[in-house]
């Protein structure tokens, strides 16, 4: 065999490896970003850095869980940011810095998330409009309601107890939020990989017609994925409010795009049917590390934006390219 064919073989095998082990690739990218951060700013090797990165990754990984489910099912949920902001405001308004309201806040927030998720699901699935536009329109309405109900004024704050369960550093490094992750992550893994619902979700995303023919209730599965997304986003809003201590309208709107990109970088595709939560967690880590790395460059704002865009496109090029028509 000539050298050229060995090279070609190697590259095509490498390409195949990249395409099939997307979650691993995301972890690999995260490690590269981590090393780059330490090279650019050696003083980053400190416990504040690790604590913050873990905390923010976990907060992002929660709406990313819901987004993963929705994307696997073949939809898209743009309402994640609006629901997070809404429950964050609910948290600070109800708690007003006093302990003891957590259960009340928790149940109302979950209810809000479930209702919005249900509306999202029904409108995207039953009515047949593109999921992106519909969830965006509903997110707009949720956002406007935030303003009307609060009159645009921020007041109140999360209770100190709740803030401690999120930000307190165990051994001085690990933020207490890992306790929440220890509950939510395994549940998500179980739902996606082990439960019957998860298997049906993958089937629905892969080939809805075939899934329907085998007796899977396609619409119901999809709507449930939206409800999951709403509930998870609502819970993330509570934790986010505890992290920020105060909240204002539209505070977490950026999480709509952030969760989407994190999930895509983690290997899930818009077409549905593939993806894993491990990849989404790795994708969340990549997003947080990327933002941190860009800040450490100390660039003026326009240069930072341009660099952010270029890196994002490079990341997408790695393994998010759809199949060519020739294949």
């Amino acid at each position: 065999m000539s050298d050229k064919s060995i090279n070609r073989d190697f590259f095509s095998r490498l390409n195949l490896f990249i395409q099939t082990h997307t979650a691993l690739m995301a972890v690999f990218i995260a490690i590269i970003l981590l090393i780059a951060t330490f090279i650019v700013s050696p003083s980053s090797l400190n416990k504040v850095f690790f604590g913050n990165i873990i905390l923010l990754t976990i907060i992002l990984s929660i709406p990313a869980a819901g987004q993963t489910m929705v994307l696997i099912g073949g939809g898209m949920d743009f309402g994640v940011g609006a629901v997070m902001s809404a429950t964050a405001i609910l948290t600070t308004y109800t708690m007003r810095g006093q302990n003891g309201h957590f259960l009340q806040v928790f149940f109302i927030a979950i209810a809000i998330g479930a209702v919005v998720g249900l509306i999202n699901g029904i409108c995207s699935v039953k009515i047949g409009l593109p999921a992106m536009i519909v969830t965006m329109a509903i997110a707009n309405i949720v956002t406007r309601m935030q303003y009307i109900l609060t009159d645009g004024v921020l007041s109140g704050s999360a209770s100190p107890a709740l803030a401690a369960t999120v930000s307190y550093r165990i051994f001085g490094v690990i933020p207490a939020i890992v306790m929440y992750a220890a509950i939510i992550w395994p549940i998500t893994f179980f739902i996606l990989n082990k439960s019957r619902y998860g298997k049906q979700l993958y089937m629905v995303g892969n080939n809805p017609t075939a899934a329907g023919l085998t007796g899977v209730k396609v619409d119901k599965i999809r709507i449930i994925s939206y409800v999951f997304s709403g509930v998870l986003a609502a819970f993330a809003g509570i934790l986010g409010a505890a992290y920020m201590a105060t909240a204002r309208c539209q505070i977490f709107d950026g999480y709509a795009y952030d969760s989407l990109i994190a999930v895509i970088i983690g290997g899930t595709t818009f077409a549905g049917g593939t993806g894993s939560y491990a990849g989404s967690i790795a994708g969340s880590l990549v997003m947080i590390l990327l933002s941190n790395l860009l800040t450490s460059f100390n660039l003026p704002s326009p240069m930072r934006n341009i660099l952010n865009a270029v890196i994002l496109i490079l990341l997408l090029m790695l393994y998010n390219r759809s199949k060519s028509v020739r294949q």
């Binding site: 700013s41 003083s43 090797l45 850095f49 105060t246 800040t295 450490s296 704002s301």
Partner: peptide, 21 residues
């Protein structure tokens, strides 16, 4: 730059703290 956005202000400050400078 925080663009007068409280969320971004907290995020930028956290990232500056991360650098350990």
């Amino acid at each position: 730059n925080h663009d007068w956005d409280p969320t971004k202000a907290q995020q930028i400050m956290a990232e500056i703290l991360n650098q350990g400078t």
